[in-house]
Lab assay of single mutants.
Amino acid sequence: HMTFVALYDYVASGETDLSFKKGERLQIVNNTEGDWWLAHSLTTGRTGYISSNYVAPSD
């Protein structure tokens, strides 16, 4: 899985979204569905959809 880092804080707007904080590391589970990616937070252990605009590759 690809690992990304959050560029900004994000508060989930629905049950399927994932809230995260700036600097949080996220593993991308599925990024084939446009701008919203299914991600797993390595910080909180939660999984949900994130906006690809809010993250950048961590490598």
Rank of each mutant, 00 (worst) to 15 (best):
L26A: 00
L7D: 02
K22M: 07
A56V: 14
F4M: 09
N31Y: 14
F20W: 02
T16N: 14
T43H: 08
N31C: 15
V29G: 04
W37G: 00
E15H: 10
S52F: 07
G45K: 05
Y54C: 14
I50A: 01
L18Y: 02
G23Y: 03
Y54H: 10
P57M: 10
Q27L: 15
R46I: 06
Y10V: 07
H40R: 15
W36R: 15
V55Y: 05
G14W: 11
T32D: 10
F4Q: 01
V5D: 03
D17F: 15
S58W: 15
E24F: 09
D59R: 09
K21C: 14
H1L: 13
L42F: 08
S51H: 15
H1D: 11
D9I: 05
S58D: 14
F20C: 03
D59L: 12
Y49P: 00
R25Y: 14
A39L: 03
M2E: 09
L42G: 02
L38E: 04
S19G: 06
Y49K: 05
S51A: 09
S51F: 14
D9M: 08
Q27I: 15
S58C: 15
V29K: 07
V11F: 10
L26C: 04
V55D: 02
Y8V: 11
V29F: 10
K21P: 00
S51I: 09
R46T: 05
W37E: 00
G45P: 00
T16Y: 14
Y10A: 04
D9F: 05
A6M: 04
A39C: 04
T44R: 01
Y54G: 05
A6G: 04
E24R: 01
T44G: 01
G23E: 01
L42P: 06
E15M: 09
Y8W: 10
E24W: 13
I28F: 03
A56Q: 11
S19F: 04
Y8M: 11
A12F: 03
M2I: 11
Y49S: 02
H1I: 13
T43P: 01
F20I: 05
A12M: 03
N31H: 11
V29Y: 10
A6H: 00
Y8N: 06
S58T: 13
S52I: 10
S41D: 02
L7P: 03
H1N: 13
T3P: 04
V5M: 06
N53M: 14
T3W: 14
I50W: 01
G48L: 02
G34V: 08
T43R: 08
N31P: 10
K22T: 06
H40I: 15
S52K: 15
W37H: 02
T16L: 13
L42S: 05
K22I: 06
G23H: 04
N30D: 13
S41H: 05
A12L: 02
K22G: 02
S13C: 14
I50R: 00
D17K: 12
M2C: 14
T44M: 02
W37D: 00
K22S: 06
S13H: 11
H40P: 00
S41G: 02
W36Y: 12
V5A: 02
L42M: 08
R25N: 07
A6V: 12
S58M: 15
E33M: 13
D59G: 12
K21A: 09
W37F: 06
H40A: 07
Q27C: 15
S58L: 15
G14T: 13
T47A: 05
G48C: 05
L42D: 04
E15K: 11
S41L: 03
P57R: 10
R46S: 06
G23D: 04
A39Q: 00
S51G: 07
Y54R: 05
V29Q: 07
T16V: 08
K21Q: 11
F4T: 02
S19H: 03
S52P: 15
S58I: 15
N31T: 13
T47K: 07
E33G: 12
D35H: 11
K22P: 01
S51M: 15
L7Q: 05
A56R: 11
D35R: 09
E15G: 08
N30H: 10
N30T: 10
V55W: 05
S13W: 08
I28Y: 02
A12T: 04
A12P: 04
P57G: 07
G14C: 15
T44D: 03
T16R: 14
W36L: 13
K21E: 08
F4N: 00
W36N: 07
L7M: 08
T43S: 11
M2W: 10
G48N: 00
H1R: 11
E24C: 03
T44N: 04
R46F: 07
K22C: 07
K22V: 07
G48K: 01
N31V: 11
H40M: 15
A39V: 14
K21S: 10
E33A: 12
A6N: 00
T32F: 09
I28G: 03
R25H: 12
L7E: 03
S13I: 14
W37Q: 03
R25E: 10
W36G: 05
L18R: 01
E15D: 12
A39R: 00
T47F: 11
G48H: 03
G23C: 06
Y54L: 13
T43E: 13
F4V: 13
M2A: 09
E15L: 12
F20Y: 07
Y10P: 00
N31S: 12
R46V: 05
F20H: 01
E15T: 12
Q27P: 00
A56S: 09
H40F: 14
G45I: 02
T3F: 14
V55M: 06
H40Q: 13
G48S: 01
V5N: 02
L26I: 09
V11C: 11
N30F: 10
Y8P: 00
Q27A: 09
L26G: 04
I28S: 04
R46K: 13
A12Q: 05
L18H: 01
V5K: 03
G14H: 13
S52E: 05
A56K: 11
N30K: 09
T32G: 09
R25V: 15
F20R: 00
Y10F: 09
T43Y: 06
E24P: 00
G34S: 09
K21M: 10
Q27T: 11
D17V: 08
H1F: 14
L42V: 07
R46D: 06
T47G: 03
R46C: 07
G45W: 03
F20Q: 00
Y8G: 06
D9Y: 03
L38H: 02
T3N: 07
A56I: 14
